[in-house]
Design a protein around this nucleic acid. Structure first.
Lengths: 213, 213
DNA sequence: ATGTCACCGAGTGTATACATAAAGGCGGAT
DNA sequence: ATCCGCCTTTATGTATACACTCGGTGACAT
């Protein structure tokens, strides 16, 4: 694995997991020594992070970790509603019904995973990830898929701000199941509506349990 | 201006204007000598281009200029319809009516510019650019604006494939005027519909006059 | 004649040295 | 005492040298 990839992955994780807080300046020599790589691959990693919007160049004086304000969260979910709503509708038109029926079945059994211990909860997140991937594949539109992928990076960061308690996760699983059901039923408008409902609930929960840093 | 910025701008222009054709391998030493910069800033330029999707890394064997197939154009316009439709609706809700009324007025006079010589035609493109910027500003959503900006790079490239004759430009000006009018009238659904109509006409024209490379 | 192995070359990935610019501190002058 | 200017320091921006990997080609053996 390339040194620049390792540096990128490490910094990306540190930012997403809020170990590197917003406003932190990422000096090149400092970070290159911390991560054990030279400045050249580190600069490439910082470029990638800046392109994704996780960092911004502070006027030639190093790059700083981007902040996420409450307005940012609103804007993020506005774009998310636009993209994922359309994606769900397209998946309903073009997707494989049997696959989404299977995903719905698994999502309806998800509460068992959520009430369990932490490893099982990890399994739940993996299941939701599989639903995202199935939608990505079903729409067969690489540009739309790319736009959603670049958005999810920021959303993971936001999710770390909220308390994902068992009650919310159980409700979210049911909402995800509804989306999968609508797609399997080949009903674009219902799929889009189910997505809109899920995202609004999700946004309300994030804003309600938001813990400022 | 930094050397990496110059290299990026030069390569970006060469790709958008189809001077560097799809499949061209951009070897680091070759391009760094051609553009008169060292390999380090050139690599940063290539990274940025790859992040934008104008180039792709060919498995550690240099980066190559990305191709745009007919399917890509369909996918591009599908995403564009999603984003710009929503943007027009949001602009109708949040925008400054007087500004868009003024833009509509100018767009209705645009046929005079189009029938004129080339410098006047440039003025028309500038006018359409001002409409885009006005919508970007009106939606006040940096993430959505960013998504549309990254999309426009590819769209400029597609537009260079089509013949923008006076007849099509005149029709496009009227369609743009309809969008501005709907936004000024604070009618989100009409603004979205007008955008959808415009994009479908635009796509049909591109596909009809498409000249393969 | 064909297949395989080894050597060579080209090109990317990385490290480091050097240039340059900006910011902060210190000293002097008013 | 305060303000202006210069100097020093520390950062990024750039260039280049070195390492390493992946193909390609040629020769040799079967």
């Amino acid at each position: 694995m390339r040194a620049s990839d390792r540096a990128y992955a490490a910094l990306r994780d540190d930012i997403i997991e809020w170990r590197l807080l917003p406003g932190t300046v990422l000096a090149e020599v400092e970070q290159s020594e911390r991560l054990g790589v030279s400045r050249t691959p580190l600069r490439e990693a910082l470029s990638r992070l800046t392109a994704e919007g996780l960092t911004t160049t502070a006027g030639g004086r190093g790059v700083v970790v981007t902040d996420i304000s409450l307005e940012d969260i609103d804007e993020l979910f506005e774009l998310r509603e636009t993209l994922e709503g359309r994606a769900a509708a397209l998946a309903a038109e073009r997707g494989d019904a049997a696959l989404f029926l299977q995903l719905q079945k698994e999502l309806l059994e998800a509460p068992d995973l959520i009430s369990g211990a932490d490893p099982a909860r990890h399994e739940y997140y993996e299941l939701v990830g599989r639903l995202d991937e199935a939608i990505d594949a079903a729409i067969s539109n690489s540009y739309l898929a790319q736009a959603m992928r670049s958005l999810r990076v920021h959303l993971v960061r936001v999710r770390r701000l909220a308390a994902d308690d068992a009650a919310r996760l159980t409700a979210a699983a049911a909402e995800h199941a509804a989306i999968a059901e609508a797609i399997a039923a080949r009903n674009p408008r219902l799929a889009e509506a189910a997505t809109t409902v899920h995202l609004h609930r999700s946004l309300s929960h994030v804003k309600a349990t938001h813990t400022p840093h």
